[in-house]
C-alpha cells in the first residue's frame, strides 16, 4: 500500500538472500547526505539491511555499479534500473545468471521540489521488465502518480537553437553526466582522446556542443530515460530532451524500445534493407524529420 510496506518487504527479502548466502552484496539505498535525499548503499550483512531506505526519493540509478560487481550481487531495481540491466545484457556487459534482480513496483520518484524526478515525468512502466523477485507496491499505485514539472524552457525560449545554446552555456564540462549514465561505459571516451582531438580543452560553447551532441548520438536508441544525467548535473543542464526525442523517433521508425527485451538486437547495431530514408535527398517521409 505504500513505500513503507514495500520497504519492510524489501528488507525481509534482502535479509533472507544474505542469510542464505545466495548473494554476497545487495545494492540498495541509504539516507542521503546534506541536500541529497538518498544515496547508494552496499549491503553485505543481514544486520545492515535494517538501515535500508526506500521512499520516493530513491531516484538514483544503481545499475552502473553492476559493471564493477559482476558476481553474486543482488540489486534493487526500479523499472529504469531494470531497463539499464536489460541493455547491459543485450550489449553483453554482464551475465544474467550471476545476478539477482529484486524488482520493485515503482510509483515514480520525486525530486526535491516534490515534482516528478528527472526521468519519471513521462515514465509509464510500473513493473520492471526483468526480475527474479518482485516486491509489489500494493493498492493505490495509480493514485500516487507523480506530478510532472512544467516544461519551462519551452515556454520561455523561442527556437530550438536558442534553447540548445542556453543549455550549453550552463555546462561546465565536468563530465558527471557521462559518469552517471548507465550507457557511457566506454573504456576510452571520445573526449579523452588526443588523436583525433575531438574536444580541445578550451572551455567554449563549441566544445560543449561537440561533447553533448556526440554523447547524445552515442545514446541514440540506447537511452533508457533514467534521468541520471540531469539529476547529477551540478549546474542544472538538461540535455535529456535531445536523447528523449531520439528515443521516440527511434521507436517510431524502427519499432525498437531499449531495455525491454534482452534478446532483441539494439536498433543501431542492425539494419533492414527497407529502412525508411527520413531526411535524405529524395528520401521518403522527409516531413517526419524536418516537420516537428
Amino acid at each position: 500500500m505504500s513505500f513503507e510496506k514495500q520497504r519492510i518487504e524489501l528488507i525481509d527479502t534482502c535479509k533472507n538472500l544474505l542469510k542464505e548466502g545466495k548473494v554476497n552484496l545487495v545494492l540498495g539505498f541509504a539516507e542521503g547526505q546534506a541536500e541529497m535525499s538518498a544515496s547508494p548503499f552496499f549491503i553485505r550483512t543481514p544486520e545492515e539491511t535494517d538501515e535500508m531506505k526506500w521512499d520516493d526519493a530513491c531516484s538514483m540509478t544503481l545499475a552502473k555499479y553492476l559493471l564493477e560487481k559482476k558476481e553474486g550481487a543482488a540489486i534493487i531495481a526500479k523499472p529504469c534500473d531494470a531497463r539499464a540491466i536489460v541493455m547491459y545484457l543485450a550489449e553483453n556487459q554482464i551475465e544474467r545468471d550471476k545476478l539477482t534482480i529484486i524488482g520493485v513496483e515503482c510509483a515514480g520518484m520525486k525530486g526535491k521540489d516534490g515534482l516528478a524526478a528527472p526521468g519519471c515525468e513521462d515514465c509509464k512502466l510500473r513493473i520492471p521488465p526483468v526480475y527474479d523477485i518482485l516486491v509489489g507496491y500494493g493498492d493505490g499505485l495509480e493514485a500516487e502518480a507523480v506530478q510532472k514539472a512544467a516544461d519551462t524552457m519551452e515556454a520561455e525560449l523561442s527556437g530550438k537553437l536558442t534553447r540548445f545554446q542556453k543549455e550549453m552555456e550552463k555546462c561546465i564540462l565536468c563530465f558527471s553526466c557521462r559518469q552517471a549514465c548507465y550507457g557511457c561505459y566506454c573504456e576510452s571516451c571520445f573526449i579523452d582522446r588526443e588523436i583525433p582531438n575531438w574536444l580541445p580543452k578550451e572551455l567554449d560553447t563549441g566544445a560543449k556542443m561537440v561533447f553533448h551532441l556526440g554523447r547524445a548520438m552515442h545514446l541514440a536508441g540506447r537511452c533508457v530515460e533514467c534521468g541520471a544525467c540531469e539529476r547529477v548535473c551540478p549546474s542544472g543542464v538538461n540535455i535529456r530532451y535531445l536523447v528523449k526525442d531520439l528515443a521516440e523517433f527511434c521507436e517510431a521508425l524502427y519499432g525498437y524500445q531499449p531495455g525491454v527485451n534482452p534478446e532483441e538486437v539494439p536498433a543501431m547495431t542492425t539494419f533492414d534493407m527497407n529502412d525508411k530514408e527520413v531526411g535524405f535527398i529524395g528520401g521518403e517521409h522527409n516531413e517526419a524529420c524536418c516537420g516537428s
Binding site: A30, G32, Q33, A34, E35, M36, A38, S39, P40, M60, S176, A180, A228, R231, V232, P234
Partner: peptide
Amino acid sequence: CIRSCPVGMN
C-alpha cells in the same frame, strides 16, 4: 562537495 555529490559521498 558534500552538497553536490550525486551519490552522497561525505
